[in-house]
């Protein structure tokens, strides 16, 4: 993407972005850029509108997910996202993630829908709390690369949580079937 998702949607770059406002912007822009509106226009203009529409969709997707939202803020502040250079997670966090994944596999195996829901809710709460801590930290960093880099471990934790939610969604689907 050439532009960061906040710029694309015309929003202030902040971690606790107003997602409802972002969704409205996405809808407005998508409507304005709809191919129907460009019928009969020159090919170059049609192509540009299509490219913009794709960019707008990608921006909305990026903002909705806390991980990609954080990554956009890091990138805008000049923090390079190199997987080899990322700080390693603390052993305690890894242990916890391993145990949570094992617990998930267990409730999935037992087809324990209530247990699955409980686990999912606990992790959602945890993700919300982590995001609530990250929002003021991003604001305080004011785009400074060194201060943003200090947030990498927390962003890493968000990614471990996201991996968990992926497995969770698969388990949910399986139990619903």
């Amino acid at each position: 993407m050439t532009h960061d998702p906040f710029t694309v949607l015309g929003l202030e770059p902040r971690f606790d972005v107003d997602l409802a406002a972002a969704e409205v912007r996405h809808r407005e822009l998508s409507r304005a850029l709809h191919p129907d509106r460009y019928q009969g226009k020159p090919a170059a203009e049609r192509r540009m509108a299509l490219e913009r529409a794709i960019e707008v969709n990608a921006a909305w997707r990026a903002l909705r997910d806390p991980v990609t939202r954080a990554e956009a803020l890091l990138a805008a502040g000049g923090v390079e996202l190199d997987e080899r250079a990322e700080p390693k997670a603390s052993p305690a966090l890894l242990m916890e993630m391993m145990e949570l994944q094992e617990e998930l596999a267990e409730v999935r195996g037992k087809r324990d829908a209530a247990g699955l829901r409980r686990l999912g809710e606990a992790l959602r709460t945890r993700e919300r709390e982590l995001c609530a801590r990250l929002a003021p930290a991003f604001a305080a960093a004011r785009g400074d690369a060194a201060r943003l880099r200090a947030l990498l471990p927390a962003v890493g934790e968000l990614r471990y949580l996201r991996r968990f939610f992926e497995a969770y969604a698969a388990a949910e689907e399986e139990l619903a079937a």
Partner: peptide
Amino acid sequence: GLVGAPACGDVMR
């Protein structure tokens, strides 16, 4: 050995 990839969230024991 317990390791993780912060870039993608994988955990491996």
